[in-house]
């Protein structure tokens, strides 16, 4: 089975992705991660304004039989939360890199991005 690993993103070993656009980092979980979890039934996300440090647990994704923490790939202040997931958690399954995004952070330190996995490195990890 092959999983989508978009070229324009950076990844964490724990299966989060981050997309940076003009100082804002959008974060979600990967196609591989959503497939491992199965049908997502519940998503818990932080409040706007919360300060996250890279590596912090910031949310929880639940399926029927599993619970998974979600980690911040980079440090920053939460500026946006995808509230659509509260009513439609299945967006995480259907469109993990698009409408299934979780939070947006105001990036504190761009250099942190260098420590993240490239698409190729992440692809190797899940192969």
């Amino acid at each position: 089975m092959s999983f989508d690993v978009p070229e324009d993103l950076r990844y964490l070993e724990s299966h989060e992705w981050v997309r940076v656009d003009d100082g804002t980092a959008r974060v979600g979980i990967t196609d591989f991660a959503q497939d491992e979890l199965g049908d997502v039934v519940f998503v818990e996300l932080p409040d706007e304004g919360e300060e996250l440090t890279a590596g912090d647990e910031f949310g929880v994704v639940e399926s029927i039989k599993a619970v998974s923490d979600v980690y911040a790939p980079v440090s920053g202040t939460v500026t946006g939360v995808n509230e659509a997931l509260f009513d439609d958690p299945e967006l995480v399954n259907e469109d993990p890199f698009g409408e299934g995004w979780m939070v947006e952070l105001e990036l504190a330190d761009e250099d942190e991005l260098d420590a993240l996995l490239s698409p190729d490195a992440y692809r190797d990890q899940i192969a």
Partner: peptide, 12 residues
């Protein structure tokens, strides 16, 4: 909502 329970969430 069994993810609240011990057989899935263990110490949490």
């Amino acid at each position: 909502l069994q993810t609240r329970e011990q057989h899935i969430r263990k110490e949490r």
